[in-house]
Design a protein around this nucleic acid. Structure first.
Lengths: 214, 214, 214, 214
DNA sequence: AATGAATGAGCCTTCATTCAT
DNA sequence: GATGAATGAAGGCTCATTCAT
């Protein structure tokens, strides 16, 4: 999963450094809050570079999201195949583990998910793209796993609700990261802590699903 | 629950109208995205009014959050007492219902939770206050309910994790509101839909908790 | 004719000083060549004043033209009445004299005609207004004078052509001002020189008109 | 008259294409309004080409005018000789026809006269050159024609004034082109219309000159 | 208490020019 | 000879804040 983070071709060009810097700055301060001066400084580029390479701040924003998406791609396609090889319960654990690690890992374009998270509060056209390309796939994948666990006895709506319950549990640790870190200390998301979260969410959800099938 | 929304004394003074307007605008556009001009226009006040009454934009922001908090106050204290009178399972349902309705209702200072939600992405000193005054109370309250359901057999850490699972399920519908609305249509949060969500989350969580106690 | 140059109410307000300064600077450098910094410096105003009072550079431009128009107004209405009282030949002399003096006088909003002159090369929406409000009146007025001189024997097209010939002779000294000044020295447009031009153009045109009627 | 429009040697070199493109763009938008990027795009050249070949935008401007001048050269010398062969009245008609067609024709380096026209409003050093090399010749030429018509009875000043009256009538249709086109429709400058203008201006001027000699 | 006018800092963008290849 | 990348200066605009009334 955590493989090449940035297409190597871009990595050392000015354009590539701008994308990388933009991702981090946009994630931290949002489209409006980020200034192209910050981005260029971080990228070691001239302040006019953004307009030269991307034609404007807004366009850089979209290119950044598109690029972040590309960097994370491969995960979803891979996942569907791999999950099919596991037992239903293993598949759920694996789904939760992958998702949670993606959300919490400081690696990956870490900024990508923070960016999308911001899109929730203040949607831009980029969000539609994300829904079409990412959300749909993930929903189907998760629904498939749940169905296998339940043994096919649940309505589509129930599958959907259970999926939301599982995703919600994972997203909580991303969305409320700030609060969790303050309550449990800065080391709340170490490797072993994340393992514990995976175990808990998996167990919690399996038990819950069982409750709907008996 | 839905009681006095705004302390009546403030309601028609310039100062009060500014707070009300600021809450709505800040919630919609964030601290940075909101402009003093928008707020004053909405409040029907002069553009210098914010600095006159609050001494600056940032200070208005803090006062707005403080005021929003005050408008919602009373809920928590009330809740703790009421929950104690219910059976454990009823108490959980009630907790979820209150929480979800608070998060999704267009009433209440609807903007208050959107404001706090924004604080997650870009914390200001206001977040600390919120954690101290709101989160702690709610955590204890919820942990108590779970403990009563489980019958006292769970570790503190497990109580915490279960609490997060429940809160995460609720928050999902707030945090991913934009996506849910696009996927399920604009009427996804009608009265009956929220009822369905409450039922699902309660059932899901009860079954899960039972899984940890057997 | 040369009366109040600027509506006195505006004269000492920041807004009024901006209009005055803008007129001069726009006339000298054009819409694009003028910078709001130049204008504000000349008006003794802050650089943000233009946006505060007019909402942008372009809008200031239109307001400036509109205001310049207003400052010159009164001339046309007055003229038509006065001309009717004169003999045909006196009326032509008077028309030429008024027009030429307006074009060449350093008084009046001197910049107004330079602005309009620039509009010829690079029209903006302001030109349409000018045609509607000024040109039409002047054409009719001049055609009337010519008709009286000719004694009603000319076609409408001929009246038009003669009018253009007269206006063209006058405009020459405005349009080619730069060249004339270089060829005949800086004092080419003194009072007596302009008198000479008026006499010449009148005599030239009267003789020509006579040529069309015999 | 309409002969070689561009010295053929330049025509397909990058340098030549730049001059051609620059002429058109400068004529349309002025020195300041034209951007190097527009010119290079139109010339199909790299954005650095202007600085490479001409050492800067301003220098390109001067070279463009110089080149435009060269393209129109030959006309004047030719003219003087030809006019001498005609009767005085034919010579005037011919002068007006040539001048008007040059001013209005979309052929010739059409942009050359629009460029010079712009120089009137905002003179650059190029204007002095133009006066020295073009205006003087034309003045003398025209004065000669008038003198022949009048039969040598007029003062030098009168010749000058009459010359200005004739040139002014012609320039009108160039300078006020925008207005004429709006008033008489887009086809105001068709072949037959220009013929009509030539006839009118010639007749008007001949009659006027006659007025000064009797 | 309240307001309209005015200000200055900061930002995005354009554009002529330069540099390295 | 020619080019794509990069740069810095400058301009217009937004906006929180201050001032005078």
């Amino acid at each position: 999963m955590a493989r090449k983070i940035t297409p190597s071709a871009e990595h050392d060009s000015t354009r590539g450094r701008l994308l990388q810097a933009a991702g981090e700055v946009f994630a931290e301060r949002g489209l409006r809050g980020a200034t192209i001066e910050m981005i260029c400084r971080k990228a070691g580029a001239n302040i006019a570079a953004v307009n030269y390479h991307f034609g404007g701040k807004e366009n850089l924003y979209y290119e950044t999201i598109k690029w972040g998406r590309k960097c994370c791609a491969g995960m979803e396609e891979l996942q569907a195949e791999e999950l099919a090889k596991l037992t239903p319960r293993q598949a759920l654990r694996r789904f939760v583990a992958d998702y949670l690690r993606t959300l919490l890992s400081p690696r990956n374009p870490a900024w990508y998910f923070r960016l999308i998270s911001r899109e929730m509060a203040e949607p831009t056209p980029a969000l539609d793209r994300f829904i079409r390309e990412v959300i749909h796939t993930r929903r189907l994948c998760l629904a498939g796993v749940i169905e296998r666990i339940a043994g096919g006895k649940l309505s589509a709506r129930r599958l959907e609700l259970i999926g939301s319950s599982i995703v919600g549990q994972c997203l909580f640790y991303n969305h409320c990261q700030t609060i969790v870190l303050r309550l449990r200390g800065k080391s709340a998301y170490e490797q072993t802590d994340v393992d514990e979260l995976v175990e808990h969410i998996t167990a919690f959800s399996l038990a819950a699903i069982k409750g709907f099938t008996t």
